[in-house]
Design a protein around this nucleic acid. Sequence first.
DNA 1: GCCTTATGTTCAC
DNA 2: TGAACCTAAGGCT
Length: 269
Amino acid sequence: MPEGHVVHRQARRISRAFKGQALEVSSPQGRFADGAALLDGSTILRADALGKHLLVDFDDDRTLHVHLGLYGKWTFRKAPLLEPVGQVRLRLVGETAYADLRGPTACEVLTPDQVEALAERIGPDPIRKDADPERAWQRVHRSRAPIGGLLMDQSVFAGVGNIYRAEALYRAGIDPYRPGRDVSREEFMVMWADLVELMHDGVRKGRIDTVREEHSPRAMGRARRRDRHGGEVYVYRREGRECLVCGTEVVWADMAGRNLYWCPTCQAH
DNA sequence: GCCTTATGTTCAC
DNA sequence: TGAACCTAAGGCT
């Protein structure tokens, strides 16, 4: 259940574990048997993330594309090899370690053209150095759709998920229902810079913390508080509890089938 | 043990 | 807008 920061961590981990090695590739579950056969014995050149998409380049111009979706998960282990447990779609075995992939939405082999097409259909990823926020700004600026929806649109912001959506809007003081076209360029650029900072922090720590020091319950002498996803946040899944800043009850709504959380006082407009 | 829920995307209507 | 995809964890019994 990852947002972009997790996928970037996984790309880094795959690079460190397997780069330059000829891998044994298999599909214990069988659903990726053809792709695994195609990649088996090939060498990994690099692994990278584009938003929530993981791309692993093998020699011979073949790229493994993995999207974890809502349930997908990687597990990394040191040798010795253990029998696959459960539904393992893909197993990568290197010299001293191996990785198992379960439950992904996408696990396929792409050609260079297909990789290019993927890169073109997703928006700028705040975690990547080559991201151009102007592309996202043009989309937001011209849209009547609510900014809360645009933040979840991967063709506008790649890698942003439900937690970063809720927290970036909270920190910017923006009502999730405000139309994109009513967000000023200044507000957009501040929010983009904030996403860059928050998501880089997520890559570094492997968890999402968004609460500023001055608002942290620790700083106010209260017990350390961890939210259910493992980090410390202002509004995500805190419906019915008090806003850490103003005390108003955090509220919840369904927005396009996803859970949306915000503080109606701190994010009034 | 059973039921609900989840940091997501795509497709059909 | 809703269902399907597909797996694991947590809450409930």
